[in-house]
């Protein structure tokens, strides 16, 4: 075990404070670790989960996610199951010739583009949620520093 580093200045430490604040690295860290150095547990340590959950911005985040995810999920599940249902119960209809192939193949192919489109819409929406989440976390960290 290496000797324990003492990062706080000892009481009575006579090290002169020379130069502007930008010239020298601070000898101690009176604000604790910066956010990117926190471990997962330190990051969440002492968080009042109920308070975060009660914030209007967090509620808004959940509502916004729900508004996208619930209809999008219902849509893709319905669109997908339309394929086996139609192919299984209306094979004649699905064998109709269209554009040199048949309806069954075109509908199956359309599923790929449907999946990519839903994914693209989701990623666009999620960009906004990232912003909101970042603001919530930042506010939490700054309120913790004030304590």
């Amino acid at each position: 075990m290496p000797p324990k580093m003492n990062i706080e200045p000892e009481p009575g430490d006579q090290t002169p404070e020379v130069g502007a604040a930008t010239d020298v690295a601070p000898l101690g860290r009176d604000h604790g670790k910066p956010a990117h150095e926190l471990t997962a547990e330190e990051d969440a340590d002492g968080t009042d989960w109920g308070r975060v959950a009660g914030e209007s911005e967090f509620k808004g985040l959940l509502a916004s996610k729900r508004r996208f995810i619930v209809p999008a999920t219902i849509f893709f599940v319905a669109y997908y199951f339309a394929l086996p249902v139609l192919v299984g119960y209306a094979p004649g209809l699905m064998d109709t010739r269209v554009l040199g192939v048949n309806l069954a193949y075109l509908f199956a192919l359309s599923q790929f583009f449907m999946a990519w489109a839903v994914a693209a819409l989701y990623v666009r929406a999620a960009g906004g949620w990232d912003e909101t989440a970042r603001r919530i976390i930042e506010r939490l960290h700054s309120s913790r520093k004030e304590k």
Partner: peptide, 9 residues
Amino acid sequence: VVRANTGLG
């Protein structure tokens, strides 16, 4: 819910 939706912790 807070963790899953914000990535906190």
